[in-house]
Amino acid sequence: MSEVEDKTQETAELTAQLSDAALVNRTCAGDETAFEELFNRHRRRVAIIASRFFRHREQIEEIIQESFAKAYFALKEFNNAQDQSFAAWLARIAFNVCYDELRRLARRPENSLSELSKEECEWLRERIFVEPGRDIEKSLALRDLADKLLARLSPEDRLVLIMLDVEGMSIAEISQATRWSQAKVKVRAHRARAALRRVLSKLL
Rank of each mutant, 00 (worst) to 15 (best):
M1D: 02
E3M: 15
E5T: 12
D6P: 01
K7H: 06
T8K: 15
Q9F: 12
A12F: 13
Q17C: 10
L18S: 11
D20W: 05
V24W: 01
V24P: 00
A29Y: 11
T33M: 09
F35H: 01
F39A: 02
R43F: 11
R44A: 07
R45P: 01
V46K: 00
V46N: 00
A47C: 08
I48V: 14
I49C: 01
R52L: 07
F54Q: 04
I60F: 04
I64W: 00
Q65W: 13
A69P: 01
L75N: 03
K76F: 14
K76R: 08
N80W: 05
A81G: 09
Q82I: 03
D83Y: 07
A88V: 14
A91T: 09
R92I: 00
R92S: 14
I93Q: 00
I93C: 04
A94E: 02
N96C: 14
L105E: 11
L105D: 05
R108V: 15
N111I: 04
N111S: 11
S112I: 05
S112C: 13
L113R: 14
S114P: 02
S117N: 07
E119N: 06
E119P: 01
E119Y: 11
E120M: 06
E120A: 07
L124E: 04
L124S: 06
L124Y: 07
R127M: 13
I128V: 15
I128R: 07
F129D: 08
P132A: 07
G133E: 15
D135T: 10
K138V: 02
D147C: 11
L150H: 02
S154G: 07
S154N: 06
P155A: 01
L159C: 05
V166G: 02
V166K: 09
S170G: 04
E173D: 14
Q176Y: 08
R179H: 09
K184V: 05
R188Y: 11
A189T: 09
R191G: 05
R197C: 03
V199N: 07
V199D: 02
S201Q: 09
S201G: 04
